[in-house]
C-alpha cells in the first residue's frame, strides 16, 4: 500500500479527496486532546492554540523531562468514542480537519465530518512505539493542570501512519464492519 502524504495545516479540498480505506502519512504539527480537553472546550473555554486546519490526536502520551526538555516515551491513540458527545462541536467551532484515534466514532461525528470537511484517521491502537518514533519533536504543552496524559501536547510529526476509517462523504468502515459482524454472529448463534 502506498500511503498518501499530507502535511498540517490541511485544506478542506485535501480532506474531501480522501476516502475510507486510504492509508495516509501525516506530517507537521499535531495537538493531543482527549477527554478533559474536549470537556473543557465543550464548556466554552477557548483553545490555547489555533486549531484551524489542524488535527487533534486522541492520545495521552508518556512524557518524561530529560535535561529540561520533554521527551515522548510512548504515544499511541486512545479510544475515541468517549469524545462522541463533543467532537462534532469542535469540528464546527474550531476549524479542525480531522482527528486521530482508535476504535472509530459514531453518527454525530460522521455527520460533522461530512458537513464541515473532516476525516477520522485511525492509528494502530497499542502501537505506542511505532507512533512515538514518528514524533520528532515536542514543541510545548498547554493545560498541564489537567495532568500529563490529559494535557494539550504540541507535537511535531513526520510520516505518522494512519488509515482513513471515516471520510468526509458520510462513509464509515466501522459501520460496515459492525453490520457484517452482527449478521455473521447471528448466523452462528448457539
Amino acid at each position: 500500500m502506498t500511503a498518501m502524504q499530507l502535511e498540517t495545516p490541511i485544506t478542506e479540498e485535501q480532506i474531501r479527496s480522501l476516502k475510507v480505506g486510504d492509508t495516509v502519512e501525516l506530517s507537521g504539527a499535531l495537538y493531543t486532546g482527549r477527554d478533559a480537553v474536549h470537556h473543557r472546550l465543550h464548556h466554552g473555554e477557548a483553545p490555547p492554540v489555533d486549531l484551524q486546519g489542524q488535527v487533534i490526536y486522541h492520545c495521552g502520551p508518556v512524557m518524561v523531562e530529560e535535561d529540561g526538555k520533554w521527551v515522548c516515551k510512548a504515544a499511541g491513540p486512545t479510544t475515541s468514542i468517549r469524545e462522541e458527545p463533543y467532537q462534532w462541536e469542535v469540528m464546527r467551532d474550531h476549524g479542525i480537519r480531522g482527528v486521530i484515534g482508535k476504535g472509530g466514532m459514531a453518527a454525530k461525528t460522521l455527520a460533522a465530518c461530512k458537513e464541515y470537511g473532516c476525516c477520522y484517521f485511525h492509528a494502530i491502537g497499542g502501537a505506542a512505539q511505532v507512533c512515538a518514533q514518528r514524533i520528532v519533536d515536542v514543541d510545548g504543552v498547554d493545560w498541564m493542570d489537567l495532568g500529563s496524559p490529559e494535557a494539550i501536547w504540541h507535537l511535531r510529526i513526520e510520516k505518522f501512519p494512519v488509515i482513513v476509517t471515516m471520510d468526509a462523504h458520510g462513509n464509515s468502515l466501522h459501520d460496515v464492519v459492525y453490520d457484517q459482524a452482527a449478521a455473521a454472529l447471528a448466523d452462528l448463534k448457539a
Binding site: 500500500m1 492520545c59 508518556v62 516515551k73 510512548a74 491502537g125 502501537a127 512505539q129
Partner: peptide, 27 residues
C-alpha cells in the same frame, strides 16, 4: 488493512523491547 495493522503491531513489539519503553502509552 488487517495485515497492515498486525505488521505495525509486530514492529511495535520489537521496538518496545529493544528501547525498553512502554509497548502502549496506557500502562
Amino acid at each position: 488493512n488487517a495485515s497492515y495493522a498486525l505488521g505495525v503491531i509486530d514492529d511495535n513489539i520489537g521496538i518496545a523491547r529493544k528501547a525498553s519503553q512502554p509497548i502502549c502509552q496506557d500502562t
